[in-house]
């Protein structure tokens, strides 16, 4: 091998390496400059993580607090329902959970639903029945957006299952509006600051204030009490079968474990004669 070819070989590998190094350095520098200006991956973008609250239904054997669900429905009806729908909850779902049959019938009857057209094809209206779903405040998404400066109030039927932090998030969001925004925060017009909402700028303003509703059972209606009740109601709405599921789970575990031990006993009983037998070899002398 001549000197020139050796030199070429070294030279080409040097060129390749320096190319790779240049590309690498340039791209990492460009990425670095982006972090100087972009708001990506800041704490504000992720939102403040909600703390864990001691919900009544936490734990294997705990059920929903049904008094709280009943109060929570009242808060939803009097406060949230002016903007948020609850499409996937039907009036009949409330029966035996938070209200009695006749109470729910009366509540449903206050709403008007589309009926079948009459003989001449004219649309008719009828009052609500147990089989109807709870009516939202707006006929469609466009109407909802138009009434809320372009922001769509989400349907609340599954909201506690649809957000990171679940019920904790909803509670923290409702109670988390600070008295004054953190210094230096600039919000787009028509939005409010809430640290738990990713990005911080939320179209919904603070809605819960002390003594906003009057509970029929005399519970003092503080902001956190109302937030707890309405979140409990929404948690139930998103997962109405939890109480039944836990009951069935307990039944299953207790019956199956009894059967398991029974099967162990049966096996030992059946095998007892086999396990205890003794082979004796007595060769003839």
């Amino acid at each position: 091998m001549s000197y020139s070819s050796i030199f070429k070989k070294i030279n080409s590998s040097f060129v390749t390496k320096s190319c790779v190094a240049t590309v690498g350095l340039t791209s990492s520098f460009l990425l670095y400059t982006q972090t100087l200006s972009a708001d990506a991956l800041t704490a504000a973008e992720h939102g403040l993580h909600p703390p864990k609250f001691n919900w009544p239904e936490n734990g294997f054997t705990q059920t929903y607090d049904h008094n709280s669900i009943r109060r929570g429905y009242q808060v939803y009806r009097e406060v949230c329902a002016s903007c948020h729908s609850l499409d996937r909850v039907y009036w009949r779902n409330l029966v035996g959970v938070s209200h009695t049959n006749s109470e729910v019938r009366d509540m449903a009857a206050e709403f008007e639903y589309d009926d079948e057209p009459d003989e001449n094809g004219n649309p008719r209206k009828r009052s609500g029945k147990l089989a109807d779903n709870i009516l939202g405040p707006y006929p469609n998404e466009q109407a909802a957006r138009a009434a809320n400066q372009g922001a769509l109030p989400p349907d609340l039927s599954l909201i506690t299952r649809a957000r990171h932090g679940n019920a904790d998030y909803v509670f923290a969001l409702l109670t988390g509006y600070p008295e004054e925004n953190p210094a230096g925060v600039v919000l787009p017009p028509g939005s409010n600051y809430n640290p738990y909402f990713p990005g911080g700028a939320i179209a919904m303003g603070r809605v819960l204030f002390d003594d906003l509703v009057e509970y029929e059972d005399g519970t003092p209606a503080t902001t956190s009490q109302m937030a707890k009740d309405v979140t409990e109601f929404l948690t139930w709405a998103a997962d109405p079968f939890q109480d039944e599921r836990k009951r069935l789970g307990l039944k299953t575990i207790s019956i199956l474990s009894a059967l398991y031990f029974l099967s162990i006993w049966t096996k030992r009983f059946k095998w007892a004669s086999l396990k205890n037998r003794k082979f004796v070899y007595n060769p003839k002398k």
Binding site: A43, A44, P50, P51, P182
Partner: peptide, 21 residues
């Protein structure tokens, strides 16, 4: 332009963990 979101979060994170339970 600086904002105090991070300091605000640190403060509120502590207060939350202290008050929520």
């Amino acid at each position: 332009k600086e904002d105090c979101v991070e300091e605000f979060f640190h403060l509120n994170h502590y207060i939350n963990d202290c008050a929520a339970p």
